[in-house]
Write a protein that binds this DNA or RNA. Structure first.
Length: 581
RNA sequence: UGGGGCGUAGCCAAGUGGUAAGGCAGCGGAUUUUGAUUCCGCCAUUCGGAGGUUCGAGUCCUCCCGCCCCAGCCA
């Protein structure tokens, strides 16, 4: 007896559902404790027709996660039944990305194409049992005869061919005697079913295409429906987890399992797919972003792909944490992208060493600091982790500070550098702005300051307080670098997934290049993928585009900025205040 | 109008007849040599709606409303 969710195993008194378990884990728990399955076996079944994205990460974390938690195993199985779209490059990328996410399939790497022979034999069994037939109708005729959502379909004129004729035709399909699309093998189920998937679905189609694994050995390829469940059965999969749009396919999945002599009886469960604001997770669109040159590639840091996040500096634990927070359910939902940002910041805050870097340099000359003098100051690598140690940084007469940390006419809530103000240079001294130097265009180009020698290290012996601490680098020692700031690829919280129109929604400011940032010298040895926090700014990592004479850093994500948020809020509210005044 | 699903806070999400977990966001406040972090506190008299059953309903029943998926020889 199936319950209303169709999950046969949710029945019974088993498993006093531990609260907090999602519905899939509850089912697994129940199946294990009731003895319905001895060992849980799951699988992650990507089609190698593109790179993995954050939506796949949900499926990966769920399938591999469940296997880990319940002492079972998870297979990596490529669903490579459509040679027209699949490529070896994608197979390699998918394996790399799953590993990087932190999961291991051990010896259990499979391909649906490994099962082509058995699948073919099963098709023949179906024909012999009078449950499948070769249809000569054109695609258009089949569509016309399939009926509509409210009208039943009509039987194909070829539906009642003899077993012998079907066997002969199917063998000739396999032998490559017919061109693509000429015929198709169909299951004989029910043309009047309310479920359109049961109206004699296609099992095999003719495709004279090169397959990345089987080459040109096959001229016919099984459909997803005919391959998936049987592949699960062959591998002994106990819980075959997929997304909601396959719910309608479950009766068909079960039909094959019931009508074929398969070695096990797997069951399919469906969960909602992941949707995130400002993000498109349609493979079609992602492929188009790459092919159309809208981004630099599948690993462009703006892409929601695993490869993109990796290059951007997002650690795998952040992705896993995010997926865990999002949960698993059957409700269509759209997760706010800021939730992902939270997971990224949390992982990075914990692990990234701190460094100082100035993105938009403003020169500062300390007038009372001896020319040519260089002092070594100690800076901790991580404020919450003593084990991270410390490093020495050089202080000199000429420095760079962040241009944004100075305001000639400071607004109310701005308490960084301004004419006459004293601030702290992190790990160094208190300095006071004495003079502002501008160029011919009236732009501020240099600050003349004085320092308080007694405030070395950042504290004044007289207990004098300062309202701000800003970061800096020694002008002489800092290394120049290009820094890339990435913004959302789509400004619309709910961007179009329509292949024809998505491009119009691309944020023209999604990439901001800062050509002349100045970094603390220790950053020259940074490794790709090692995250750093540039203090007061955000998390950054060295990009693979770096060359021996030109460093490139990518911003993973900015620090939370309540000041900026406050300013933005005031700006929004000011019209009302003005109206009142 | 056929079939399959889903509706709990701004966004996710627990809840399985006994009186609405948790997280994100937001808002206050404390600490701070990062306007970061951390820490405290606030944030659903009500679960899409209306009836009904019950001592008691987010949970059970009925009707209604809304949203998503399905008419590929894609997966």
């Amino acid at each position: 007896m199936d319950d209303k969710t169709g999950n046969h195993s949710a029945e019974g008194a088993a498993a006093p559902a531990e609260p907090g378990l999602d519905f899939i884990r509850e089912i697994v728990t129940g199946d294990l404790s009731a003895g319905r399955v001895r060992e849980v076996v799951t699988r992650f079944p990507p089609e190698p027709n593109g790179y993995l994205h954050i939506g796949h990460a949900k499926a990966i974390c769920l399938n591999f996660g469940i296997a880990q938690e319940f002492g079972g195993r998870c297979h990596l199985r490529f669903d490579d039944t459509n040679p027209a779209k699949e490529e070896q490059e994608y197979i390699d990328a998918i394996e790399r990305d799953v590993r990087w996410l932190g999961f291991d399939w051990g010896q259990h790497l499979y391909f649906a194409s490994d099962y082509f022979d058995r699948l073919y034999d099963w098709a023949i069994d179906l024909i012999k049992a009078g449950k499948a037939y070769v249809d000569d109708q054109s695609q258009e005729e089949m569509r016309a005869n399939r009926g509509t959502l409210t009208e039943p379909g009509r039987p194909s004129p070829y539906r009642d061919r003899s077993v012998e004729e079907n066997l002969d035709l199917f063998a000739r399909m396999k032998a490559g005697e017919f061109p693509d699309g000429a015929r198709v093998l169909r299951a004989k189920i029910d043309m009047a079913s309310g479920n359109i998937n049961m109206r004699d679905p296609a099992l095999y189609r003719i495709k004279h295409a090169h397959h990345p694994r089987t080459g040109t050995a096959w001229k016919i390829y099984p459909s997803y429906d005919f391959a998936h469940g049987q592949s699960d059965a062959i591998e002994g999969i106990t819980h075959s987890i997929c997304t909601l749009e396959f719910e309608d396919h479950r009766p068909l999945y079960d039909w094959f399992i019931a009508n074929l002599s398969v070695p096990s009886t797997p069951h399919q469960y469906e969960m909602a797919r992941l949707n995130i604001t400002h993000t498109v997770l349609s493979k079609r669109v992602l492929t188009e972003l790459v092919r159309g040159g809208h981004v630099s590639g599948w690993d462009d840091p703006r892409m929601p792909t695993i490869a993109g996040f990796r290059r951007r500096g997002v650690p795998p634990e952040a992705i896993r944490d995010f997926i865990k927070r999002v949960g698993v359910s059957k409700a269509n939902s759209q997760v706010d992208a800021v939730m992902f940002d939270f997971s990224v910041r949390e992982a990075l805050n914990k692990n990234a060493q701190r460094r100082m870097a100035v993105l938009k340099p403003l020169k500062v000359v300390i007038e009372n600091y001896p020319e040519g003098q260089v002092e070594e100051l100690e800076a901790v690598n991580h404020p919450d982790d003593e084990a991270a140690g410390s490093r020495q940084i050089k202080f000199t007469r000429e420095l760079y500070i962040e241009h944004d940390d100075f305001m000639e006419v400071p607004e109310k809530k701005f308490f960084r550098m301004a004419p006459g103000r004293e601030v702290r240079l992190r790990y160094a001294y208190f300095i006071t702005c004495k003079e502002v130097i501008k160029n011919a265009a009236g732009e501020v180009v240099e600050l003349r300051c004085t320092y308080d020698p007694a405030s070395k290290g950042g504290n004044s012996p007289d207990g004098r307080k300062v309202k701000a601490t800003i970061h800096w680098v020694s002008a002489e020692h800092a290394i120049p670098a290009e820094v890339r700031i990435y913004n959302p690829l789509f400004l619309d919280p709910n961007p179009s997934s329509d292949a024809a129109t998505f491009a119009t929604g691309i944020n023209p400011q999604s990439l901001e290049v800062i050509a002349d940032a100045r970094l603390e010298p220790s950053l020259a040895e940074a490794k790709v993928e090692t995250p750093f926090q540039f203090e007061r700014q955000g998390y950054f990592c060295r990009d693979k585009d770096s060359t021996p004479d030109r460093l490139v850093f990518t911003r993973t994500i900015g620090l939370r900025d309540t000041y900026a948020k406050d300013v933005a809020k005031d700006t929004r509210e000011s019209p009302r205040q003005n109206a009142k005044a």
